[in-house]
């Protein structure tokens, strides 16, 4: 039996990797993947808690998050492709025209 704290630690580690990647990388696809990491860290957390508390609702929630995340990934990638076709770059520092 794996204790709850291990799961939490894993989740925290994955989340921190996601945040770090999101803040430091300049490639929009890498940033996007970091985002997915953060999302899945949350999922791990939810499933662990669901198991620990013997409450199925946490896992149901995860199913929804996966479904939404799939849709979000599809739209996000589509936007990135459209962006690339227009600007021929995935480097976010070069995409800075939308400002006040």
């Amino acid at each position: 039996m794996v204790p709850l704290s291990w799961y939490m630690a894993l989740s925290a580690a994955v989340f921190c990797i996601g945040v770090f990647g999101f803040l430091t990388r300049r490639n929009i696809i890498i940033m996007f993947m970091s985002l997915e990491l953060m999302l899945n860290a949350v999922n791990i957390n939810l499933v662990a808690m669901s198991h620990y508390l013997q409450d199925i609702r946490g896992q149901v929630m995860v199913m929804f998050i996966i479904a939404v995340a799939a849709a979000e990934a599809a739209i996000g990638l589509a936007i990135i492709i459209a962006l690339f076709r227009n600007r021929a770059t995935v480097h976010v520092d070069e995409i800075n025209e939308m400002k006040g």
């Binding site: 999101f22 803040l23 940033m31 976010v92 520092d93 995409i95 800075n96 939308m98 400002k99 006040g100």
Partner: peptide
């Protein structure tokens, strides 16, 4: 002017 258009400004402020 806060709206710089630079993605990293947004992300760091968010974090």
């Amino acid at each position: 002017l806060i709206q710089t258009g630079v993605l990293h400004h947004y992300t760091s402020i968010m974090a």
